[in-house]
Amino acid sequence: MAGSAVPLATPISYGSAAVNGQLVGFQTSSAYRPVNYGTGLQAVPAVTPVNIPPSASYPTTGTAAAAGAPGTGRGPGTSALNLKESPALWTVIFLVVGFIILRHVHWRKG
């Protein structure tokens, strides 16, 4: 309504106004717009169409889609010991490194 030519009542005091010559009590709008806390619903999680990247390879394509999460990662590759294809070797390497650091840094003799 801001900027419109709508004639409004004459406010007299907080919560009071003269409407058509009579004094009327009004509540004010702040109470109807409370300051929210917390977060509201951002958006409904939409179900997006599943796109399977063409690079993903599934040995058993008939059941892999139902068992796993297609499109979210690589399927089981054929080279588990390849540092570029699989995290398996990296896991072992970092485990060993972790033990070494524990032994020589954390438990080192002062």
């Binding site: 406010p11 106004a17 009004f26 509540q27 004010t28 709008s29 702040s30 109807y32």
Partner: peptide, 8 residues
Amino acid sequence: LKYVMAGS
């Protein structure tokens, strides 16, 4: 319906 005055 009761009127609610704009403003604080």
